[in-house]
Write a protein that binds this DNA or RNA. Structure first.
Length: 261
DNA sequence: ATGGCGCGGTCACCGCGA
């Protein structure tokens, strides 16, 4: 099974790029974030024609939106209303091969890392706390959590520790919450796990840079987490940075993982 | 150099991303 996670920043605008990506890399389960479209406008039939017969998408106008498109039959779908909000930030499925998949788009958190003056930051932290409680007692095997978690976990997941330490997505409080999610929820950060601990890894580069590759000021915000039992079944993990070079790229690149189940 | 760019939408400016 090959699974992909990608914050596409508009599924309709980037349709063709996504289609050729899924063909080239033989993706079985495609998890997208920031689809930015209501369900009635989701290009469902186009994905069906590519073999993604089973689909679960929850979108809204302009903002957010997540989807799981699968060639492996989906036997169960679930949704949870995080922080009592109807934001389209999570979809979950159980597949016929007994794998459970959660796809998240964690709130970005606004500009200022202060819960009193910036309600978006407060919302982000509360969202993470709810995720921690949701998975706290979950010892399910065969589970995978993917998505744009909007947090770079560690020093080698950002281009500059010094310059980003007070920037939302890399503050200590966010990284502590992500670390708590991993330990309490029995999650393994398999992207980091399959690379050297001190290798710089990024999945996002800002649009606001003349030459993303030259300045290389990236952050690792997109993640694939799995339960312990799946770690030994990993055959391959790739961060496909070449997609940042595409014509009209997303600011995030896809990450793919292959499991021998 | 707290700028810069790109997305969708009650559409030419604004909210949002991070």
């Amino acid at each position: 099974m090959i699974i992909a996670t990608w914050n596409v920043n508009s599924v309709r605008l980037r349709q063709d790029m996504i289609f050729s990506f899924t063909k080239k890399f033989n993706i079985d389960v495609l998890c997208l974030q920031e689809t930015k479209t209501e369900d009635k406008n989701f290009p469902s039939d186009n994905f069906k024609n590519l073999g993604y017969e089973d689909q679960y998408f929850i979108g809204q106008k302009s903002y957010n939106g997540v989807t799981i498109l699968s060639k492996i039959p989906i036997i169960n779908k679930f949704y949870h209303e995080w922080c009592g909000s109807k934001d389209a930030r999570h979809v979950g499925v159980k597949l016929k091969n007994k794998i459970t998949i959660h796809n998240f788009y964690v709130p970005a958190g606004g500009d200022v890392p202060n819960v009193t003056t910036n309600l978006k930051f407060k919302y982000k932290l509360n969202f993470l706390k709810e995720m921690i409680s949701y998975f706290e007692t979950d010892r399910t095997k065969n589970k995978i959590l993917v998505g744009d978690l909007n947090i770079a976990p560690n020093i080698h997941d950002v281009w500059s520790h010094k310059q980003l330490i007070n920037v939302v997505s890399y503050t200590q409080v966010e990284r502590d919450l992500l670390s708590e999610l991993l330990s309490k929820g029995n999650w393994i950060d398999i992207i980091r796990g399959q690379h050297k601990p001190d290798e710089k890894l990024y999945t996002w580069w800002s649009y606001r840079s003349k030459d993303w590759k030259k300045s290389n000021r990236g952050r690792r915000l997109d993640h694939i987490l799995t339960s312990n039992d799946l770690v030994k079944k990993i055959k391959m993990i790739k961060i496909l940075s070449e997609f940042r070079d595409a014509k009209k790229p997303s600011d995030h690149v896809p990450v793919i993982a292959k499991f021998k189940l």
